[in-house]
Write a protein that binds this DNA or RNA. Sequence first.
DNA 1: GCCGAGGGTTGACCGAAATCAATGCTTTGG
DNA 2: CCAAAGCATTGATTTCGGTCAACCCTCGGC
Lengths: 242, 242
Amino acid sequence: MTVQQDIHSSGIPVLCLSCEARHRGACGALDPDHLVGLAKTSWRHKIEPGVKLIGDAEAVDSYSNVLSGVVKLTKSLSDGRQQIVGLQFAPDFLGRPFKVESPINAEAATVVSLCSFPKAAVERIMKEAPELEHRLFKQTLIELDAAREWMVTVGRRTAPEKVASFLLTIARNIDRTVDPAARSARFDLPLTRVDIADFLALRFETVSRQLTRLRADGIIRIENNRHVTVDNMSRLEQRCGG
Amino acid sequence: MTVQQDIHSSGIPVLCLSCEARHRGACGALDPDHLVGLAKTSWRHKIEPGVKLIGDAEAVDSYSNVLSGVVKLTKSLSDGRQQIVGLQFAPDFLGRPFKVESPINAEAATVVSLCSFPKAAVERIMKEAPELEHRLFKQTLIELDAAREWMVTVGRRTAPEKVASFLLTIARNIDRTVDPAARSARFDLPLTRVDIADFLALRFETVSRQLTRLRADGIIRIENNRHVTVDNMSRLEQRCGG
DNA sequence: GCCGAGGGTTGACCGAAATCAATGCTTTGG
DNA sequence: CCAAAGCATTGATTTCGGTCAACCCTCGGC
């Protein structure tokens, strides 16, 4: 099977240029002209949790689509304090347009599968096809909105509100093919308690206590530390503090 | 004087398409083809502090360049808790590509002068000239980096570190024509103590106390509540916590 | 002149989350 | 099987920044 066939048969939008509905997961309109040029030089790979994908101030020579799993974007202070500044889910795009270096670290939070493209090829096609740049621009705007929304959570919500907001974010992004307005949800937490704390600017003990409280209040159930069930999403939303 | 002459004589880059050095303030290479099309329909205006420029979930029908002054971008929770999620300085760009509504509020923090363009005109030219979209994309990437950098400050720095980081950010952005590596700095704070607190996710009393401490330690001087002098920038940097 | 509003500073006290510490539960590997 | 490591929970105590309150200064209006 060629790489291109592989991509087509997977049904996953890989650098899909013609599809507006990137958040629905399903993608019916791959543009063969652009895709072929990239697919020929693309490669897919599987990454284990904890593996670094992009290092702060290191050269980045490829762009990737997240096909499955979750990638965490982090920044650190020199004394080790860490902040997760973003999470990338399928089918998000990973890479730094117009710059050799990235100001952030990217690390696989779960097992991640990627479809990567040489940076030079992507940028060549971006010049020829404004639609590609347009799509990347739109993703960047979505990431900017998400970053600012998250700043409100990190800065102005209390610990209970932070944890509830986090669960809601995961429920809505871990599998974007499911209806974001669904009344209930089941999902695996893609992050450890330590990671959740680094995302929310809390300590892991605080995260643990707040999860315990949500469990005691009957809002969530947790099995095997990772598998979460939310029967009534609106009760969870009420805990997010508006 | 026509608007176009006005813009040219002002020396300020207004939707400048050909100039890479937007952070230097000076701009020698306005592209007449693109600029003229916009300048004909542009208008300049002066905004008083506190005036709302973009309301959350309101339609936005224009794009603007900040010519002078500072615009604060805010998000609020329903109970009134507020977070400043970004500051726009000259010659930043204000507006929401590809969307009618903006998920944030924008408000003049100081007296602000703007050069505005009808949304439709900008988007028409963006279609004809990929360079315009390219420039807006680059600004968005810079804003995304800034937002993520700020998330680290809001989430992981202590109150003293936050206030020091804030002063550094202002010193480096309030007038981008000055050397960012300068050993000393003098500038007017564009925000009240309340605004600074909303930016740093602190209370205004805490901001006040930390400023007092920096003053007592001889790192800054403050006159008239607003005018700040930093004799030794590296001493301020040491207080930012790495 | 007086008053009131807006912005700023400082002090006393309080509380939410951090810190320190003990313990349990899985998973992996010898 | 047991040991060790990684992850998670829970309790006791501390602390940083929040809260409440008093007071100052400046400016603009009557």
